[in-house]
Computed example of a mutant assay.
Amino acid sequence: MNLLERYVFRIALGAFLACLLGLTAVIWVTQALRELDLLTGKGQTILVFLTVTGLTLPALITVIAPVALFIATLYTLNKLNGDSELIVMSAAGMAPRSVMRPFMGLATLVVALTALMTLYLMPTSFQELRGLVTKIRADFVANLVREGQFTTLDQGVTFHYRERAGGALLGIFMQDKREAGRTVVYLAERGQTFELNGESFLVLEKGSIHRQQAAARDTSIVAFERYALDLSALTPEGGDVIYKPRERSTMQLVFMDPSDWLYQNAYGRVRAEIHDRLSAALYPLAMVLIAVAALGDPRTTRQGRGLAIVSAIVAVGAMRIAGFAATSAVVRTPWALVAVYGVPLAGAGLSLLVILGGARVRAAQDRLARLFGPVTLPRLPRLRRA
């Protein structure tokens, strides 16, 4: 890059970082407010609260970074034109591709950031979040429930213990009435929570399980010496842990085992997740080209730029909505893959046509001016008042 291009790049980079940090902070605060229940309702520390909310940042940055790049490009071009710098650059013979080069350099950095987030960091953060939620459930049983109190862990699940001895709970009672017409009661002399392979369990010792159906008068009783209760079963999502497509790494999705439950029953969701991650890197390029196509031409201060800015915002919004719709359609049919990649590529291609077409028009006007000279209009005589 030459001196002018580096100057434009610094302005655009500063605006991009300001937009990225500002938008991420605002949206992160709204997400954090939704997780305040970790502090107020589940007795967690501020460190756990920050960890849970921080694990959502990769997903936020993936969506915000292209938008921040678009806003930074609009701001930079509008500032250069408002200070007449864009006009001076054009009058000095600076080609449109030279004006576009610093923005494309910044877009390349954003593409790399978006690819890193979508292909690696975002699924990793979702996996960590799933494991942390499981630990929070264990802490909820061990720390929040008070001695001698009946505490509702979930709708239909009641937990009680008599006293605590060290890290163990004594005199445990738990009633599970989540399933309509069926009641399960766990009684144990002693219990303790522990973690195994990233999952939390409550191990009950010397107790019994009482099961009763609404239609039956008899109750089945099973005595046990040790019984491990999976704490994930205390939530509506209990049962075998099945990681969602967004919680799996890209390699796990691409090379999925055919015997996997998702592969057999919901492969459309897997296909949509794979191609959504791959196509996400195309949107920063398309957005920066739309901004350059709208505001890249130098204009005088009397020529309004409001309509161009609004047109660029509408174009970007329509492109992003079409991209979301295409990703949703891929779940049902693989033919929608054409639209998943075609939407951002079409936005980038049309913007390039506008940029290069405008450059050709200006070059033709310059050639005509050199051949025939400037065209001047005759002055009309002034009319005097009678």
Rank of each mutant, 00 (worst) to 15 (best):
P123M: 06
T151I: 10
V292P: 02
P378V: 04
V145Q: 05
W335T: 12
L368C: 06
L74W: 10
A165L: 12
F159T: 05
A12Y: 09
T76R: 05
T24C: 14
L47S: 12
I221L: 15
Y227S: 08
R320M: 07
L38A: 08
R305G: 11
N197I: 09
D366R: 15
L119D: 04
R332E: 13
T158S: 12
T62P: 01
G349A: 15
L39H: 06
G171L: 12
S90D: 09
R178P: 10
L119T: 05
L3Y: 11
V354I: 13
P298L: 05
V222G: 02
L39C: 04
S259A: 13
L352T: 07
G207D: 08
M256C: 03
R384F: 12
A322R: 01
G41R: 15
K206W: 12
G304M: 02
L383M: 09
G43V: 07
G296Y: 03
A294I: 02
S259L: 05
L229S: 07
A233N: 15
G347K: 01
Q44T: 02
M122N: 14
T376Q: 14
T40P: 04
S249I: 02
L169G: 08
A363F: 01
S232P: 04
A59Q: 08
L20V: 02
T158G: 02
A228H: 12
A315H: 01
T183L: 08
A326F: 09
V270R: 02
G82E: 07
L21D: 01
N78L: 13
I290D: 01
L371T: 08
A223D: 15
A364D: 07
V292Y: 00
L132M: 10
V157T: 11
R385V: 11
Y243D: 02
R360K: 15
T250W: 00
G373K: 08
E205T: 12
T73P: 02
L80C: 08
K206G: 09
D218F: 11
T124L: 14
L132I: 10
